[in-house]
Design a protein around this nucleic acid. Structure first.
Lengths: 149, 149
DNA sequence: ATTGAAACTCACAAGGT
DNA sequence: ACCTTGTGAGTTTCAAT
């Protein structure tokens, strides 16, 4: 899969705004909309494009607290059952099986510290095999981006 | 800002595919395209919708390794200069100022372990004020989603 | 808040180089 | 393999309800 300058413009414009019309891109590049359309189909088939998503602003829903939680498991054999339970907690937006001290490392979005405490104590600590957790609260996020092309 | 069932369908369809035509949504809910269009404009103005983004598949570019790195800073006064340097490293896709042991907590996407080592040793450890780092490599990601509406 | 119609813009299949 | 044309489909505005 080789990507030329035109493809890069297509990708750059759609990463910024996924609803940009193909013809706007066409005008920018200087070729027809159909040509852009064809290139886009090829990029989509090539698996380079994962999809187009609307992103919701969590703050507008009152979700003002981001936290990372390292989860200790009694036994790694409990991993898949723990994941199943974590999927049922909507505030858990990412989960990773990581090297290092923790068995599972998760990212949580919640409304405030009280809400976070509730999720930790009632939802996560109750999961079978979870012995202990360590929490890092994000006070400020300065970088949030995709890998560059 | 109040959100009814129709808004939820609009949001749900666009979260899944941001390029879904307004008329497809209109057919799904059974009202006119103009009505959907008007609701969408209102949702966009309300800040609930953050934007529409194309997502790139990092694996298709050879980025197969995700890691979290806790960064220790000599002094918290070096925070903003360190962030400035971190922004120059394209592999750093997230940065947080966190409570707990670390001053800065970052997420890195890189091609392989050798690449990761290079970024840690040459790029991050070289930043003024960075004394030490702790790295967690993600071996498996099971959850990756947005906050639900 | 929703509609239908008008004017405009776009997407995509078919065909040309 | 890459491009343009043509046309059916989609978007957007607006007066009316």
């Amino acid at each position: 899969m080789k990507i030329d300058g035109i493809d890069k413009i297509i990708i750059k414009m759609l990463v910024k705004d996924a609803r940009t019309p193909v013809l706007s891109i066409a005008r920018e590049v200087g070729i027809s909309g159909a040509a852009i359309h064809q290139r886009l189909r090829k990029l989509e088939k090539s698996a380079l494009i994962d999809g187009y998503r609307m992103t919701i602003n969590p703050k507008s829903l009152g979700y003002n607290t981001t936290a990372f939680v390292g989860v200790f498991l009694d036994s790694s054999s409990l991993y898949s059952s723990a994941i199943k339970r974590l999927k049922e907690i909507p505030e858990v937006v990412e989960s990773h099986y990581t090297t290092g001290n923790y068995a599972i490392f998760i990212k949580i979005l919640c409304k405030n510290n009280e809400d976070l405490m509730h999720i930790l104590n009632k939802n996560i600590q109750n999961i079978k095999g979870v012995s202990r957790t360590e929490t890092f609260i994000s006070l400020d996020q300065q970088i949030d981006r995709q890998i560059s092309i």
